[in-house]
Amino acid sequence: MANIHPTAVVDPKAQLADDVIIGPYAVVGPNVTLGARTQVGSHSVIEGHTTLGEDNKIGHFSVIGGEPQDMKYAGEPTRLVMGDRNRIREFVTIHTGTVQDGGLTSVGSDNWIMAYVHIAHDCHVGDRTVFSSNAQLAGHVHVDDWAIIGGMTGVHQFVRIGAHAMIGGASVLVQDVPPFVIASGDRATPHGVNVEGLRRRGFSADAITALRNVYKVLYKNGLTLEEAKKEIEAIAAGASAPDVNAPVRELLDFLGTASRGIIR
């Protein structure tokens, strides 16, 4: 049976796993599903059509599944879906989607989301990301696996942050950040490859060297984006080792879908 504090308000229609813990003065709405061992901190609100997986920990005073801050929203039953083992700290807000963009906000698994972070409607966050305190995502933002977003950073709507990218604190992003790239500033500009992060995650020395070469082609050789993509294609074609070819291909594929253009 779920462990619900006597002061919490939990709608009887909510679906709670037997070992969920609900803290003092928390509120859980009727369309909420909480997976096994999930914990909801004191004074937090879990509302909307919201599904959380297993082993999530929601900090105090967070609002998860709130209505979109979008003037077009008219009360449609849009959703928030979150995976497993996420750590959501104090005063975090994550909103449901809008019907204009599929009606879904999603957060994957094993993410570390620090205090006062905001994840707006229709955002899609992958796995093993880190959001430092006060990072703010506007609507429709995509954050791929292993990305790190520094504190006080603001991300414009529809921007995509590639896998293993690292964004410095107090940055402003108005265009896409390719995978593996470090970016910072207002407006954010590229500052090399996230070498230390890639080493920690087991990327080979050859893969890191290839990505450094790709970075030079993309940002140091004075090429247009289309010219750079052709040279990066050649680097990928010449990389027979799968552990080298795969990340280069991933970056190349990202460039082909960067709808807002990339930081320059």
Rank of each mutant, 00 (worst) to 15 (best):
Q157D: 09
N194I: 15
V214D: 06
Y116E: 00
Y219I: 15
N134Q: 10
A170N: 05
V195T: 11
D127I: 04
G192R: 06
R201C: 06
N213P: 09
T224M: 04
D145F: 12
H191T: 02
P190F: 02
R187L: 13
S133G: 08
H118E: 07
A188W: 09
V172E: 00
Q136Y: 05
R199C: 06
I148C: 05
L211V: 11
L198T: 07
P179E: 03
Y215A: 02
V195P: 02
I119W: 06
S204D: 03
D206E: 08
G150T: 08
I119H: 12
V141W: 03
H118L: 14
Y219H: 10
W146F: 11
V174K: 14
D122K: 07
R199V: 03
I119Y: 07
V214F: 10
P179V: 13
L218M: 02
G222L: 04
N213V: 13
G162K: 04
V217E: 07
S184T: 05
A210S: 11
Y116W: 08
K229Y: 00
D122F: 10
D186S: 14
H164M: 14
D127Y: 12
A205E: 07
H140A: 13
V193G: 01
A120F: 11
Y116G: 00
R160M: 06
A120K: 14
A207E: 02
E226K: 11
G154Q: 09
I149K: 01
D145C: 07
W146M: 01
H156S: 09
A138P: 11
L137H: 08
L173I: 15
V193H: 01
K229D: 00
V214A: 14
V159D: 09
E227C: 04
R187H: 09
T189P: 07
